[in-house]
Design a protein around this nucleic acid. Sequence first.
DNA 1: AGATACGTGTACCGTACCGTACGGTACAAG
DNA 2: CTTGTACCGTACGGTACGGTACACGTATCT
Lengths: 216, 216
Amino acid sequence: MSLSAALNDQDFDDVEFTPRQEAVLECALGLLVDGGEKALTTAGLARKANCSKESLYKWFGDRDGLLAAVVAYQASKVHFPPESGATADGQTYRAHLIEFATELLAVLLGETSVALNRLSIGQSKREDSRLGRLLLVRGKYMIAAKARALLEAGRHRGYLRFNDANEAYQVLYGLAVRDVHIRLLLGDEASPAELDLKGQAETAVNRFYKLFGVSL
Amino acid sequence: MSLSAALNDQDFDDVEFTPRQEAVLECALGLLVDGGEKALTTAGLARKANCSKESLYKWFGDRDGLLAAVVAYQASKVHFPPESGATADGQTYRAHLIEFATELLAVLLGETSVALNRLSIGQSKREDSRLGRLLLVRGKYMIAAKARALLEAGRHRGYLRFNDANEAYQVLYGLAVRDVHIRLLLGDEASPAELDLKGQAETAVNRFYKLFGVSL
DNA sequence: AGATACGTGTACCGTACCGTACGGTACAAG
DNA sequence: CTTGTACCGTACGGTACGGTACACGTATCT
């Protein structure tokens, strides 16, 4: 079963890559990070990765399959630490929230994430945007799920009060990310204050508690 | 003076387009909205707009100049209403904030804005992203300036309390937009609730007042 | 040793598209 | 009537890139 077939079947879940393929995909990531999509040509990747174009097509089907594989590979690298500290008091729970926000910012502002988002967005057209969906389901939705679980735990223990966990997460996201992500995607640079991820996460969580925290 | 020369000089300000050129740019916008960047070819635009490729190159220099002209043209269409209601009580000021947030969402979620953002992001590479900068300075920065003025007025009249107007604006932006913008750029669709711009703007402003409003 | 499988390197084809050149048309000014 | 300007339509060169075919090298299995 080829990868492109798997992609067409919307079924990209249980795909594993051999070490050799992962090395090639890492090269592809490097080309993408500095150079954008147009820098990732089949000939260029084959030259940089010391592999043949024929192998690329054997492994990934076609160029779209290659791009999808790059996204899937990068997404497979983010680990979800096991539910951190099931028994936590209010202070450590708040610290966990801050840590989550910090990691969120670290991921979104990372250059590989920026490069992949640029790639997926550039490919997205009106209707039919497979790369975008892939990035959403393998990236954003996973993070959102983890965040919802974290927030639900906080509500269950009486630290937070809200009706819709998803809405609460989106507010936390907005408070932490603001317009920094889109500005980076457009080529702007983050200000020094915005590069203090920990500080940004703390103020975001502070404001979040002002909105959804139980009365002091 | 050609447009491309003006672009290279970072000076794209006092550029005006003839009605004929604007009609062509409108066609280009249409091609961009449904089809993405690759759908906007010089031959295709010439065919759809009933103009010659030679005219395109005479007017816009090259394809990059054409893309830049499309962005500049669209940016030139957003008007800034004169400072609304200099003398306003607390209720109408809050209404003005809601109106601003509503318009912000309407712009960001509009399909032409999404298409242009996709275009600019797709063109942005590591270093050197002229389209992105153009969209930032002609779009985002203008909106941010207006928002800062509005917020400063609110602080001056005692409705709001904050130190940095820019930071306050970013919080308002985050509360209103959340992750909807990036999701749309990636090809996701807005939920029904998210399409209720007025309602979204109201809750965003409510939360904003919880953070920066003076004590009730 | 031979066979099968896998991968590299290279040459090649077809195509899409940018950019330009050129012929033809309409129109205004002298 | 001539000249200049602006534009359309089309055809063509150059090129970059996706995709394929093939020759050669290497390892593993029998």
